[in-house]
Write a protein that binds this DNA or RNA. Structure first.
Lengths: 145, 145
DNA sequence: GAAGATGATGAAATACTTTACCACCAATCA
DNA sequence: TGATTGGTGGTAAAGTATTTCATCATCTTC
């Protein structure tokens, strides 16, 4: 489950940052669009559908701030755009299935990498602290065609 | 095992592209540095340690061409630089362990994702054709300290 | 072998996302 | 009230990757 607004505001305040109008609007946009995987620019456009407008630099700054606070994670799909999505309330990351035909993004919540990470620790002596995993392929609908 | 030069030249010719001097030098540089994970610019610098110099645009173009031909794969570590590395001769991709302390990159050849991909097919109806997997953490040497 | 067509190269210009800078504003505190 | 701090917005700048365009080399075709 993604972080709720109250948790995010708490994290901000706890770290000594102010809750300003622009910041709140970025946070709300993140929550509302949490399943859409918007780029920074798309998020910016979405926010500015309502007045007063806020600056693009502020959106970037706020997202970087939230990233520092581990409130959001960065998602890079390889198309040159950074995307940010709300972190999970548990510390389990989720993974993405990218359909190369229709472009849809499916989220996989399962934590199926624990076993692998143990193996990397055992066989390679590598201590895993995080991972980025993306699968490319065809979603169910596209595969049928 | 990464592709050998003969295989690459074969792929070029088979697709109707010409083997030119600059292209050959890019290919050789990829082979020589296959374990160094160089950025495009670093590859360009390495090539131009010998005369005659070739253009940066040509390096980009050649790498994109080889990518189209599936001769190289693109590796993005999240630092804003594209890296290209020789594809494996079998169609099995390898994965990377990134040490966040010393910056070393360890390659894992094992194909430990087959089982997972079957599960994605079974549970999500998602047909996997490729994946990008990176693990962050501490390598054996750094973990001991 | 000559002439035209095709493909490749290199230098510079351009695109594009992201960050840095700087002046201004708002809130807080002495 | 005056001063300090933090935040904002517009713009400039950074920086990687791509595109443009003139030129060159190679290959066909007659």
């Amino acid at each position: 489950m993604p972080l709720a607004q109250a948790d995010i505001l708490e994290a901000l305040r706890w770290s000594g940052y102010k809750l300003t109008g622009p910041r709140l609007r970025v946070i709300k946009a993140l929550i509302i669009n949490h399943d859409k995987h918007l780029t920074v620019e798309e998020l910016y456009d979405d926010i500015n559908r309502e007045d007063p407008p806020i600056g693009l630099a502020t959106v970037y700054r706020t997202l970087n701030l939230l990233y520092e606070l581990a409130v959001v994670t960065k998602l890079e799909l390889g198309d040159g755009f950074d995307r940010y999505e709300l972190a999970d309330s548990s510390d389990h990351q989720h993974h993405h299935l990218l359909c190369s035909r229709c472009g849809s993004i499916i989220e996989v919540k399962e934590d199926f990498l624990d076993e692998l990470e143990e193996r990397l620790q055992r066989d390679y002596g590598f201590h895993v602290t995080g991972h980025h995993v993306k699968f490319y392929g065809l979603c169910q609908a596209c595969y049928r065609k």
